[in-house]
Every structure is written in structure tokens, then in C-alpha cells.
Amino acid sequence: MMAYMNPGPHYSVNALALSGPSVDLMHQAVPYPSAPRKQRRERTTFTRSQLEELEALFAKTQYPDVYAREEVALKINLPESRVQVWFKNRRAKCRQQRQQQKQQQQPPGGQAKARPAKRKAGTSPRPSTDVCPDPLGISDSYSPPLPGPSGSPTTAVATVSIWSPASESPLPEAQRAGLVASGPSLTSAPYAMTYAPASAFCSSPSAYGSPSSYFSGLDPYLSPMVPQLGGPALSPLSGPSVGPSLAQSPTSLSGQSYGAYSPVDSLEFKDPTGTWKFTYNPMDPLDYKDQSAWKFQIL
């Protein structure tokens, strides 16, 4: 009977010793046993002879290597770790002494450095960015050149030099007046198309007034536009458009034309069986010896 009264063996659950049927240790109110408190290391007290050895090595170098620390530790009968900690504390003490010396050398008012006064946003004049500046400075420094007289040679050079070769001289006033084509001369031969040399188009003023001019072949195509416009036809070669000034309004060009419109200028042929003959000019830059190549039959 006494065997049943004795408590059973101890069981360990999660490293906790349980005594038989008792489960009081598993209750929430019972805390787990805490780790033992780490003991504080005792402070090391250095003797005068030990301090002399350490100070002598510190005077040589503030960062001794492990071999120098072990050698000193053997002399003063201390572990190497204590020597390492002593050098660490000695360097910190040396830095603190240097900072105190710097503070003593500075004057009393030198510690508080005078800061520059901050400028207020409204006091300083700042350039306004509302208006974009002129990058080319046209509004201040540029002045347009004065327009020359209508009959000045410089204007003629600016007008005619675009179309004339570089080897030719500017046309005088008398020749510029001949550039304007007359109405009857352009409409006299509506079906004849003559190819003149390129030099005649640039230099010869008579080429624009003769039936064999460069633009005589364009007349049949330009004249039928007159009834559609409801007024006189516009002429690209009329009046002052080739003269001194090219800047004319469309209203000033509306009254200039080749001449009176005639039914002869239409595109319809009077004789459907007729042929169109292209007159060959020996001055043509295209060297075609066979003139029969310039004739064709309209079917």
C-alpha cells in the first residue's frame, strides 16, 4: 500500500520538471525561470610600474599592434585584453584634452560664430520673369535699313540677281523696263511654242516681248482663266512685280493683265486636223540634229 502513496517519478516537459499528477507549474501565473544575472567585471587597478610601461608604449604609438600589447601584458602581468581596453580609454582621454585646449585658446566670443544676415524675399530687387527677354536684342539694338529709291541700282540687283547668272552684270533701268511683257505680243502666236536658250531668258530683255519668248507657250493655258476669275487675268510678269519692288498687295496686282481676252486664246483648236509644230532653235543647249523629232501629229 505504501508504494502507491509515494509520488511517481519526475517528468520533464519543455525542460520543466513536473512532479506526478501536479500540474501547477503549467499555470499561467507561474513564470518561467529567468537567466542568472551576469556579474559585473571588477575594475582593474594599475600600479605605478604598470602605468609607466603603458605610458611609455603610448608615447611611441597610440595604436599598438597585438604583438606589442602581448609583450607589455607579459611585463606588467596583466591579460592582453586589459591592455587593449586601457589604450582605448587613453585615446579617448587624449582627444578630450585636445578639445579642452582648443576651447581655452579661443576667445569668449569666438564660440558663437556670427551668422550672415538672411536676406528677406521682398527687399532684394530681383529681375521680373513675367516678360520673356528678347534673345536677339531686336527691340533695343536692331534698326531696319532704310528703303532705297525705287530706281536705285541696288534694288535692281536684289531683284534680278536671283534669276540671272553670276557672270552677267546687273540690268540697267532701261533693260528692266523691257522685262514687262506686252499683251499683244504674248497673244499673237498662241499655238507656236519656241524653246529659246537659257541665257536669253536671263539677259535678253527682248525675249519677253517677242513671239518667240519663253513664256509665249504658256499663254494658251493662262488666258482661259479670265472668265472664271470674273475680271482681268493676273500676270506674273506684269508691271512692277518684276520691277523695283516685289512687295505689292494682291489688290494692286488684280488690275494688271496680259491684255484683252480673245477667243483665239482658248485651248480649242480651230482646225482639228492641224498639227502643233515646235520651232527648233539652233541655240538650244539640247543638241538634236534631227528636226523631225520636234513634229508630232495630233490624233
Rank of each mutant, 00 (worst) to 15 (best):
A166K: 09
H27I: 13
S188D: 02
G178H: 14
E70S: 08
Q103R: 14
T123E: 03
D290Q: 12
V242I: 09
P211E: 00
Y280I: 14
P220F: 15
I138R: 06
R98A: 02
A198G: 01
P190G: 07
L16V: 08
P7D: 00
Q62P: 06
P127V: 09
E52H: 10
L51Y: 08
P79W: 13
L78Y: 15
A174E: 07
T61Q: 04
P21M: 13
S199G: 10
I138K: 09
S249P: 04
P232Q: 05
P227V: 15
E42K: 14
P33V: 10
P133R: 07
Q62I: 10
P236Y: 15
D130I: 09
A207C: 14
F296K: 00
S213I: 13
K75N: 10
F278K: 01
Q62S: 10
S34M: 10
T129F: 06
R119L: 02
P145D: 03
Q96D: 09
S252L: 10
M26G: 06
Y63K: 15
T159S: 03
P79G: 07
A17G: 00
K88E: 13
F296P: 00
Y208K: 08
Q100T: 05
P172M: 14
T123V: 09
P232C: 10
A73V: 15
A17M: 15
Y280D: 00
T155N: 01
S212N: 04
T251Y: 11
Q103T: 02
T154M: 10
F46I: 12
Q101A: 04
L299M: 01
S128M: 07
T154G: 03
F201N: 00
P250A: 08
D284C: 15
F269A: 01
K289V: 04
T129Y: 07
T194Y: 14
M5V: 05
S235I: 15
A117S: 07
P220W: 11
R176M: 05
P116Y: 03
A68E: 08
G243L: 12
Q291E: 00
R119S: 03
L16E: 00
P272I: 10
Y195S: 01
S34K: 07
Q291H: 09
V160F: 10
G259H: 07
A198N: 01
S254Q: 05
L222R: 08
P135S: 13
R37P: 07
D24I: 13
V30E: 07
G255H: 09
E55H: 06
N6E: 01
Q175M: 11
L136Q: 04
P116E: 01
E53F: 03
Y221C: 02
A92V: 13
Y258E: 01
P172E: 01
P205L: 14
W294N: 00
A166M: 03
S203W: 15
D24T: 13
V13I: 09
H10D: 00
Q28A: 10
S210P: 09
V66H: 04
S292P: 08
P285H: 03
P127E: 08
G255W: 14
V23P: 02
P227Y: 13
Q106W: 05
N89H: 15
A174D: 02
V160I: 09
S245W: 15
P227M: 13
S223T: 07
K93N: 15
P33N: 09
S249Y: 10
L286I: 05
S212K: 10
G183W: 12
R90K: 07
